[in-house]
Design a protein around this nucleic acid. Sequence first.
DNA 1: GAGCACTGC
Length: 679
Amino acid sequence: METLREGRERGGGDASTSDARKANGAPTGAKREEIDRVRKSLPIYRAKDRLMEEIRKSETVIIIGETGSGKTTQIPQYVYEDMTLTNGLMIGVTQPRRVAAVSVSRRVADETGTAHGTLVGYAIRFEDVSSEETRIKFLTDGMLLREAVGDPLLSKYGVIMIDEAHERTLQTDFLLGTIKGVQRRRRESLGEDQYGRALPPLRVIVMSATLEASSFSKFFDGAPVIYSRGRTFPVEMFYTEEPEEDYLDAAMWTVLQVNEEEAAGDVLVFLTGQEEIESLGRMLREKASELPSNVLKLNVVLLFAALPPEEQMKVFEPTPLGTRKVVLATNIAETSLTINGIRYVVDSGLSKLRTHHPRSGVDELLVTPIAQSQAQQRAGRAGREAPGKCFRLYTEEIMPSLEKYVKPELLRTNLSGVVLQLKAMQVDDILSFPFIDPPPKEALLRSLELLYSLDALDDDGKLNDVGKKMARFPLEPMAARCVIAAEIEGCAIETLAVLSMLSTDSVFQFSREADGQKNVARHKLKRKEGDHLTLLRVFNEFSACSPKRSRDWCREHQINHRAMTKAVKINEQLTRAAMSQGINLTSCEDDFTLVLRSLVSGFFMNTASKEMDGSFKVFTTGQKLTIHPSSVMFQSPPETILFNELVRTNKMYARDVSSIKKSWLSELASKTFSRRSTN
DNA sequence: GAGCACTGC
């Protein structure tokens, strides 16, 4: 989809430095030999001939490659070397995460001795380091899905490889279904490229790390499965004899015991969230100061996504002699980040899991026992460089009672975005879309209902002009609908800013230590109408700062600079998308009522009124809720509220809340609110 | 008066 493609922000620089290197000559003989030697030493190399034979024979192949097999970097190159497989078209390799797409791309560019962005490149949101020459392209699966909206036959690709398929992310599962449809249409010769030439069949290679191969094989009509061993070290398992009552306490004693009894090597502790990580951090640091002189000193570091990047980097600093690093992490350390030097893992057996309930529209974020596959993955983190040990803070007996795999995200998420995108890809019969694990029919029907109430669908269930515009924005349908309304209200600039802020992680930093300061800072930026306009104010004040000043401004106000930078980028992307849709970008200046009206036009399902007892009740579902204490509306709750989302943690909380007029509902969302029911 | 696991367009 051209309209959403970004310019080459980092790409330009990256390519030019690489060009310089190329001008100085491709890798020297010695370096070339070294690269070849390493490539041939990878486990996947031993399977190369068998693998390529299968790939040539079958349109679709499933590859099970354990960690360290080299499948991600090598197979794209093997496939590229065989011209008959690609027909001169591109090889697309998808990854669930941005960093992986970039780093693997860079590696493969190095191995092929070409400048990054020429033969080998990547495309992720906000960055495109690829060119006309690019034949091996790494992308996030979300990016390939966006491409499929503008090019439903994926006509630029001869081969698609879907990596890390076992993670079963929303985007990967969505992509698997999409790819299957593309294969069918290209096979049935319904497809031709932009010059009217018939497209060759689309070859697909699904790569997965676990043995969950049969479901992929079955999904692709019995595609052959090839196994490739990995390269990891054995990990010895230890369990508790009795269930732990206080696993935080147990984790602390386990760490201290490891430190006392085990050989050198760093420790990784898996916990569920920021709060308990900070709390165990305090406990351990206290104990660490009283350690006898004959044991290693403890260097406790914390790791979770909300941590500022500088703090996160501490995890990667090498451990000084005479000390032992103890990393307290969320499941960010399970897949997203790999830390060198870990020999011991302490596993709480728990993680936070988000689950959506379509009927009530509520999301739950609850501490949940992990799946067996996660337990295995966590333990494996101890055996990447040498034999290791894993201490599980649960009994061996409960293992069989754990789910085998994490429930696929597609089965526990709000599907309205997926359904909107399907409609945009002209998949009209949503219920017959080939999902590898079909979501409950009710979840799909609820999504269709929502799209209908947002005026995105006509009576036949086809996308209308409003819906087509909405699908062009990288936003959830309710948010996308606000953009359409904002044009009519005459406040597109302000509404896009609010939506950009809602699209990022919370910009307000919180931590027990800095609490006092934070409240003061937030209070200073508060706007009485609610959180949405407070966010607008934060966005505008940040934008008014010079780049140099903006860091100081963030520090003064306890605002997360990284989140702000992302909000600005998203705002730029949304603004470009709006312009390409011919939407008038007007400003309402100080008439903030118009912004709130635009938000109501999209988020009218997320509205509630105050009850006699002071609690709130959602108009449409009757769901009871409480305003989250972090909201600027917490102190003085208004009669009628609009909120961004409803998440149940300890209580049912509405997050990001603003005060609205009840009468707007029947005016702006007449399909859902008749005049009689609200006035 | 409480707290936001992790991704992605």
